[in-house]
Amino acid sequence: MNYHKISQEIKDIAFRLLADKEVELVLGFGKEKFSGQSTPLITSSPEKAREMIFDENCAMMLANYLREHAGKKVAIIAKPCETRAIVAYLAEDLLVRDRVTIIGIQGCTGVKDNTACQECTVREPVLADYTVGEPLTDEVEAQDDLSLEEMSPQERLEYFREEFSRCIRCYACREACYACYCPVCFTDSNRPRWVEETLGINENFTFHLMRSLHMAGRCINCGACEVACPEGIDVRALAAKLYRVSRDLYSFEPGMDPEEKTLFATYDSEDPQPRFID
């Protein structure tokens, strides 16, 4: 990917949209001053928009910020996975289409330190008003990570116990996820108490199971949760499993069509039930 060229195109479009008052706000990435990393740059100033960049460090999901700005006319720099998040928001009626201007990045080859990018099949924007960069000419090899599937159930149970034993319940995974937006998370619910706040393998395990159930049919497998985890826990594995189940059993992949009903909002009378008792 030619990040320089893409960054230039982004700057131009963002500047023009703000200067012409077509949008009130642009969500993009800027350079972190010291580390050389990227950071969200959300601005209403055309001048400031000229500081926007895009490179392989821009791992964060800017789409997460769309909900809080849902009332305004906003433009967003969106990686293909983020366009899916936006489509999923539209499907859940959380955004109004004509209030969002999508500047889609074409030919995405993934971001740094995100294992999900290796499983990604969506390399071009699903929905965009402007596109930047060049579409990929070759098929990119995408491979599901099935290493856990090959283990025995007992091994998997041990694996997750080990992983979740490190969880400090900072909820960074939750915060990083585009699809986590309940006004009150079940973790904070007292009546009833779905999961104890205390740390413990049982509680941590329960939390991650419940969180991934909430992602069922909604997770776009973007990997933001995994990137966000300070403990390096494999927090994506459970939701990614459900992503695969949804895709393989129901041919449903969220965030591809704003008109399509979400997985649990519809059914087919011939839906499979592979492990049910006959």
Binding site: L157, L213, L242, V245, L263, Y267, Q273
Partner: peptide, 22 residues
């Protein structure tokens, strides 16, 4: 029950994946 079926199938797959005996 049609809506339930999808949720239950997803639940079942998830828990088995997490290591709970089928």
């Amino acid at each position: 029950n049609y809506y339930a079926r999808r949720r239950l199938v997803m639940f079942q797959e998830l828990l088995i994946f997490a290591g709970v005996e089928e």
